[in-house]
Computed example of a mutant assay.
Amino acid sequence: MIPMIDSPQVAVALAARWHHARVLLLASMVGLPALLVLICLTFALFPHPAVSATTWSVIPVVVAALLSVALVAWLRRDGLTDPASWFPATVLMTGSQLVFGVVPGFGVALRSATGTAVALKALLALGILSAGSACSLARRACRSLLASPVAELGSTPLQLVFRSSLSRIIIGTDRVDWTCRTAGGRLDAGVSFRNLHDVNITMASVDKGTSPALVLHTSSGRWTVPAHEAAAMCALLRRRKTRWEQRVEAAIEQERARYHEMMRLLGAAKATSSTDDGSVSVTVNADGVTTGIALTEGIQGKSPQLVSADLMVCIVEAHRIVRKQVQHLMVERYATKQRTEALPALAQQVAELAA
């Protein structure tokens, strides 16, 4: 299934696209880069008369293997949600494998090995063909997944990029950006979902007549963006905006629940401090208000001044204890590093929803 999808309807609707794209993606970013590593390893395994040549032949293998691992790690961490980056990432990594792995390995093997020039050249040609095929398959994977806009794509976390002869539209998880040609040149603009009020379609004038276009009603005005399959794009964009609103509402509800839980725990927080002989005991709540004082028979024979001093000591100690409890609840338990880093984004989302 597409990562981060929990809707069976969306999964079924996109199953054919995702299956084809996944096969192409695995071939371009896993299979063919691994083949390049094997080619470098084959170069290193050719017999070398000198020990130094053997050492140098290992370096291209290590470099190619590290680049292959880095490509797979990027794909698993960030790459799956950004189909538009599959092609440039594959070009960068497989090109680097070719330049820093296959070609140097071929050079070392050609200088050292004897009578195997034809086999080495064949392996070099295979490496070049593999790198080129990986780039082509990565491009095809992106195109097969985003071949045409459908509403179900709006329920995915994918960064959606749609290109046509008239415009380029990028639909993210919280905003939409576009580039289109105008009479005065090229227009680059964008709007966040906070400022996007509505989307519909119209017919717009272009160079060769009229064409369907998206109409974006935003806080800064009305924007007309020519788009291929504008009706499907409109449905997709509306679903993506609805998904963003649901995420913001869920985040607000989660914060509200955490706040009520914290208030409940703070209301139940209290601390009690007693003297060593137990004759004086004081209880305070989270607000520092004294809620209970207990005096036992141990105060008999003590002067009023000593009893007052014991009370003050117990009050101060109880305040210290309850202060630590409150600090633990508000700082150590709730204000974790991850939540502290997420608070600015949450505050922005709350403001966007309120607007």
Results as ranks from 00 to 15, higher is better:
Glu261Val: 02
Ser192Asp: 14
Ala119Glu: 10
Pro149Gly: 02
Asp277His: 06
Ser165Ala: 13
Val62Leu: 11
Val37His: 05
Asp287Ala: 15
Thr242Trp: 08
Thr296Val: 06
Arg143Ala: 07
Asn285Lys: 05
Thr114Val: 13
His328Gly: 03
Arg243Gly: 04
Pro344Cys: 03
Ala15Ser: 06
Leu80Gln: 15
Gly115Pro: 04
Gly154Leu: 10
Gln246Arg: 14
Leu45Gly: 10
Gln159Ser: 11
Leu160Ile: 10
Thr55Phe: 14
Leu237Trp: 04
Ala257His: 08
Asn195Phe: 05
Trp74Asp: 04
Leu145Val: 00
Ala355Gln: 09
Leu98His: 03
Leu71Ser: 12
Arg181His: 10
Ala232Tyr: 06
Arg181Leu: 07
Gly184Val: 03
His19Met: 07
Arg163Gln: 02
Met29Leu: 11
Arg181Gln: 08
Asp82Tyr: 08
Leu71Ile: 02
Gly292Val: 03
Leu343Lys: 08
Gly101His: 05
Ser303Thr: 15
His228Cys: 03
Lys337Thr: 14
Cys314Thr: 11
Phe162Val: 00
Ile171Gly: 00
Ala73Arg: 14
Arg222Gly: 04
Val37Cys: 02
Asp188Leu: 08
Ser136Gln: 14
Leu38Lys: 02
Val326Ser: 03
Ser148Leu: 09
Pro3Lys: 06
Asp82Gly: 01
Val102Thr: 08
Ser219Val: 02
Lys337Phe: 10
